[in-house]
Amino acid sequence: MKAAVLKTLKEPLVIEDVPLPTLGPKNVLMKVKQCGICITDIKMVSGVRPTGNLPFIIGHEGVGIVEDVGKEVTHFKTGERVLMDPLLSCGMCLNCSFGRDNMCESRRLIGITNETPGVYAEYGVIPERNLYKLPDEVSFSDGVLINSLLSPAFHGVKRMDFKASETACVYGLGSIGTMTILALKAFGASQIIGVDINEQALKNAEKFGLDYVINSKKEDPVKRIRELTGGKGVDVAFEVVGNHETILQAIYSTRHGGRTCILGVPFYHVVIDFKDALGFFHELSEKEASIIIAWGYTRQEFPMMLNMVKKRLIDFSPCRTKVIPLEEVNEGIKWTGEGKYTRVIIEF
C-alpha cells in the first residue's frame, strides 16, 4: 500500500509502497478515506516531539471504510463508514475505570507512539475498541474535524459543566478556539466573546457566531469583558493559548463563582504568576473562582459529538478545510504550520 513515511527528522516525508499491516483478531482494517494533518505531526517531523525509531508512519486523525475485520471483531463489518479515536487506553487502570481514559496510566496514541503506526497510508489497522460508526449524514471531512479539533474543545466545554444561557469568553481563536465556539453554541451559550491578538484570526472567528470580538493588543480584554457583562465578568472563560498572560486574563474575566478552563497546551515552560500581591486573593479567593484543566478527550465523548454533528447542533460550515492528495503531504504540512486553514486533510 501507499504511505507517507517519516524516514529522517526535518526531511520531507517519503511516499512509497509499504506492506499492508497485519490484522490482529480484535482489529479492523480501515481503508483510509481521509486523515487530518495535526500540529503534533509537524512537531514530530521537525523533531520537537520525540518519535522513537524511524522509519515511522505518522497520522492519527483518520476516517475511512471497514475493509476487513479480525476474527473476534463483533461490532463492525466490511463496508461500514468509521471514525478512529487514536487514544489507546488500557480500560483497566484507575483513571480508565472512572471514565478518565484521557489520563490512562498506559496511554498510547496511534500514529504518535512508536509501536503503533498511523494512517498517512491507504490502510490502517485499528483496534475495534477505537472505532466509531460514522453516520451517513456526517461527511468524512466532518469526521476528521471531530477527531482532530472538536474533541478537545468539546471535552473542555463538557468538563466545565456548561449550562444553557451561561456566558463565555474564549482566549485564542485558532482551530481549537473556534471549535470551542461551536461547542459553546451547541451547549446553549447566551453570549460568546472571542479574544485574540491576530486580526486575521479575529475576522475568521466572527463567522463562527461570536457576539463580540476583542483584539487584546488594542484594548484591555478584561476591562472590555466586564463592560460587556454588566460589570460582572463571564460565567466561564476558556484559555486556548497556553500562555501565562492569557491564563491570568481568562481568570480575571470571570465573575464571582466563575470557572476558567485551561485548554491550551504549551510546548514551553509556563509560570502562573498572579503579579500583584493581592492578585490571587481578589481574583480567586474572594471570587470563589475555579480553575479547571481540560486535557484531551474521553471515549464516551465520541458518540455524543457524532450525534450532535449528525443533528447539526454542531455545524462545521464556517470551518476552512483544504483537501489534498497524499502526494502533496509535504505542502500540506507547510500549510498547516501557516495556520490558514482550520484543517488540511489528506484524501485517498
Binding site: R100, N102, M103, R159, I262, V265, P266, H269, V270, V271, I272, D273, F274, K275, D276, A277, G279, F280, S290, I291, I292, I293, A294, W295
Partner: peptide, 20 residues
C-alpha cells in the same frame, strides 16, 4: 504574591486535569 511554578508544567499541572 502567589505564583504557580513547577519543574514540569505539563506533568505536574496540565496532564493531571485537576480542578482548583
Amino acid at each position: 504574591k502567589i505564583s504557580f511554578e513547577f519543574e514540569n508544567y505539563r506533568q505536574s499541572f496540565l496532564f493531571k486535569e485537576i480542578k482548583m
